[in-house]
Design a binder for these strands. Structure first.
Lengths: 251, 251
DNA sequence: GTCTATAAAGAGATAGAC
DNA sequence: GTCTATCTCTTTATAGAC
């Protein structure tokens, strides 16, 4: 891995190949140049989110950043190593945030609201990584090396569970709620919503105005709270404003 | 495409190969033997649903039916041709059913209920095909040859739309409903639910008893109707039984 | 209708020049 | 840090024996 430092000036075509007349790369001296890795990871994230990890080739990633596939291996040991770097931090921080919110000293409806705000906020802000986590979930579940993904998701689920239980105990939520069904449905719904919001699916003609994230969040808060609130509480105000601070994603 | 009918009797090994001593295939004279294509398509459906179309190799499919990859090309012109055969009928019949229900001479809530019953019923019955349609939706959207998929989905969307509009007009549903957001959310939710129901995702510990399809259907009917019903109608009974007949999938 | 064998292209990954 | 070049394995697909 040791790279000899004999920095060769550009003006030395002394080898038989000389200066290639081919298409010169757009911006070889881009901005910082120290964040080359980041640039490559962004391209990979894009591809993985769009086509899935397995269907993406390292050549496609290399093309996106205008280098040859072999050169990628100077930055990353393998295609899988890139995936680890892309998902690890996101999945673990997300889980930690969910656990934090579930333990906040406010009533269960405020915590549930904050959880929804957190998920929709983070999943839209960082949508591509969450798309990978969702779309390739079977891959993560089956590969030992990615077991931390499953572990983090399980911890988040238990935090949601505790919140729902508290809400039932406090008579805020329907007592008949099935935890597992309710939570998994909500989480899938928010995940799909963020994906939709960021990726503008085309086959259904949208109404004129574009949706704002705020509008989408309000919609889902109302949708979910309508479904979980105890009868009689159905027209209580939705405590969104009060929960925004709690829902902030802590990195 | 013409298939010669000279049905050769099983008992004619007259060729030089005679009985291979190698590992005999499990059931070379399986049931009908005329449904060999069906068997292969089933294996392909399985793989495509599980890992995605692009990530699946023809060798994997061939392995699953115990033949060599080259032999598949005796049955299908290409990997894509298999995908066409797998999705075409399902997507077009599903759309036709949605349109039919949306035009039924019953109130909008009954039609919405029937639509939910139809989607959950068909999507669990025929889950793998719908998983392919959902997971590889970007692939279908981008490939001209599969434009009929997009077309069918758009028609179904418009049928849902009309049903929702009628419900609002009849004061059955909230007047504030955003069509697009509501419909796309419901459809994604039902799609994800069917996937979950059939594929038992593992990272969240499920409660003791297994879920029944009936239970899952009731849960989603209540979840969705809670969200769309006009205030004051929130505790009306859910007209499931009355809609079962209407919701039957017509092939 | 399946096999053997192989073509042709593409995959992930490595070595060494510069 | 990127390129050239290449290795090895796998991919989709075809040709022809049986």
């Amino acid at each position: 891995m040791t790279v000899p430092i004999n920095a060769k000036p550009d003006c030395e075509p002394a080898n038989g190949a000389k200066a290639r007349p081919g298409l010169a790369r757009p911006a070889p001296v881009k901005a910082g140049m120290a964040d080359r890795r980041r640039h490559i990871l962004d391209a990979a994230t894009n591809r993985f989110a769009e086509h899935g990890f397995e269907a993406t080739t390292v050549r496609q990633i290399a093309d996106d950043v205008n280098i040859l596939s072999g050169s990628l291996y100077h930055h990353f040991a393998s295609k899988e190593a890139m995936l680890h770097e892309i998902v690890r931090e996101t999945v673990e921080k997300m889980s930690a945030n969910v656990v934090r919110i579930s333990k906040a000293p406010v009533d269960a409806e405020a915590r549930l609201t904050a959880l929804i705000l957190l998920e929709l906020g983070e999943m839209t802000r960082n949508q591509q990584v969450h798309a990978i986590l969702s779309n390739d979930r079977k891959f993560f579940r089956v590969r030992e090396e990615f077991s931390y993904v499953v572990k983090a998701k399980r911890e988040a689920y238990h935090a949601w569970c505790a919140t729902l239980q508290d809400g039932i105990d406090a008579k805020l939520f329907k007592s008949s709620l099935d935890f597992y069904l309710t939570i998994s449905t909500i989480i899938r719904m928010l995940n799909a919503a963020a994906d939709w919001y960021k990726n503008e699916e085309a086959y259904m003609a949208r109404p004129l105005g574009a949706y704002t994230l705020d509008g989408v969040i309000d919609f889902h808060l109302e949708f979910v709270l309508s479904a979980v609130r105890a009868p009689g509480r159905t027209s209580a105000p939705i405590p969104r404003a009060a929960c925004e601070a709690l829902a902030k994603f802590v990195a």
